[in-house]
Design a binder for these strands. Structure first.
Length: 403
DNA sequence: GTCAATTCACATGAAAGAGACCACGGTCTAGTG
DNA sequence: CTAGACCGTGGTCTCTTTCATGTGAATTGACGA
């Protein structure tokens, strides 16, 4: 773009009326002043946790619910209110919130405990200390604190899946060992069945109280979206039906409010970029496509080389041959490909895991089937939409230095 | 024709290794007064 | 004498390999009608 054109473009851009009043409403950590359609759950949680305000130990609590059902938001909302109350009263209280899924922060036993200890103002190195040492530091600081401590562990299922239930066992044991303070646990999980696989001792102590967050239905999603939209957009930006469509799309999936909100945001951005002063219905379709496309591109680009190489093999095989592909075929294609790219070929055992990972990410669809006499294998097909396959193939070729 | 045993091609689990990263304490080295 | 560079040790974390065990239905082959 020539210099003059560019400045013209910027001038035009400034002249145009922005659609957004306030983008913050759409950001991840945003907490609305009121929480819609979760009164029942909030009341329930509040009743259970309230004793802590008087210095008593409340029951441990376990909260289930799919992503985007408002678990985290409700807990944060309650935490905030509790802190407000406790600041006024004479009974101090310590609340620590941790998301166990955060990579490199709290996704292993060591890191979780280290992070908790840091919550008490301790300095813990990222690595180098024995784990028991960190436990000791943490326990000591709890003991010294002399006030009730509440630990909120978000996405706790991820932690247990990765590291086992030892951490939880140690944390629940905490109360028996410490005389001065009490620690109560609040666990949030996406996975309903995860607790059944826990050590029975941990299970009984952790799930003294349980609560399930049901998915939002389309009408509830509409309310939530409307509330956000009122703050985010200028009046009259939304065509009638826009909110309804966003809500319907997301309700059809799992009632995921986060997704619904993102959909609305991206639709707004697309409309703004197109120079519209209204968000038309077609931008919602476009937004849904864009979100999916971006997600897939992000995933593929951020995969390690080996996974990329395997995904590339899958793409090549599935374009070459119709129907499903099997693990063995992929491995046969992958091995010579490694030679070309200078990668060290991995064993088939590892490939099997990588394929399972790609399936988890939703890039491919893999199902274990038995072909009777002809063995047991995974039946694999691409789930990428045709429109992104070429694009992703290009990204992979660049990533792998293929010509 | 029926039924149990066999067989294939991986899936799945467990354990252990390699290599990267990091903190800590001790030793060495160069610069300073 | 001291600050900083440079090891060696001991720890975690992630990705892999190795070894072992599991699995589900097509196929096979014995058996009886």
């Amino acid at each position: 773009m020539a210099e003059k054109e560019l400045s013209n473009f910027f001038n035009d851009y400034l002249k145009k009326e922005p659609l957004f009043l306030n983008r913050k409403v759409f950001q991840g950590g945003y907490l609305p002043e009121t929480v819609d359609h979760r009164d029942e759950q909030i009341q329930f949680i509040a009743k259970i946790l309230a004793p802590i305000l008087r210095g008593d130990k409340p029951s441990n609590l376990f909260v289930y619910g799919k992503t985007g059902t408002g678990k985290t938001m409700c807990i944060k909302y309650i935490m905030e209110k509790m802190m407000e109350t406790t600041n006024k009263s004479s009974n101090p209280l310590k609340i620590l919130y941790l998301n166990c899924k955060l990579k490199r922060v709290a996704d292993t036993e060591y890191r979780l405990i280290a992070q908790l200890a840091r919550g008490f103002g301790k300095e813990i190195p990222f690595t180098g200390l024995p784990t028991d040492e960190v436990y000791r530091i943490f326990f000591n600081s709890v003991e010294k604190e002399k006030k009730p401590v509440m630990l909120v562990l978000d996405e706790i299922d991820q932690l247990v899946k990765k590291t086992g239930d030892g951490v939880l066992y140690n944390l629940t044991r905490c109360n028996e060992e410490l005389k001065g303070s009490q620690v109560s646990l609040v666990g949030l999980s996406n996975d309903m069945v995860f607790i059944d696989n826990l050590d029975p001792r941990v299970k009984s102590s952790l799930s003294e109280e349980e609560l399930v967050f049901p998915p939002y239905n389309a009408l509830q999603l509409q309310d939530i979206l409307r509330q956000r939209a009122k703050k985010a957009f200028k009046d009259g930006t939304l065509k009638p039906g826009t909110i309804e469509k966003c809500a319907a799309y997301s309700a059809r999936e799992h009632g995921d409010a986060r997704r619904a909100i993102e959909l609305l945001r991206v639709a707004g951005e697309l409309a703004e970029r197109a120079g519209e002063n209204k968000i038309l219905l077609k931008y919602i379709d476009a937004a849904e496509e864009k979100i999916e496309r971006d997600r897939l591109v992000d995933i593929t680009a951020s995969q390690p080389k080996q996974s990329q190489c395997i995904l590339y093999s899958i793409i090549m095989l599935s374009t070459k041959k119709k129907g499903n592909i099997f693990t063995g075929e992929i491995y046969d294609f992958y091995k010579p490909l490694c030679q070309k790219t200078g990668l060290r070929p991995l064993t088939q055992r590892r490939i099997s895991d990588v394929i399972a990972e790609l399936d988890m990410l939703g890039v491919i669809h893999a199902k274990v089937i038995s072909k009777g006499r002809y063995g047991r294998t995974r039946e694999i097909s691409l789930t990428l939409p045709d429109s992104s396959v070429l694009n992703i193939k290009k990204i992979l070729e660049e990533g792998l230095d293929l010509t």
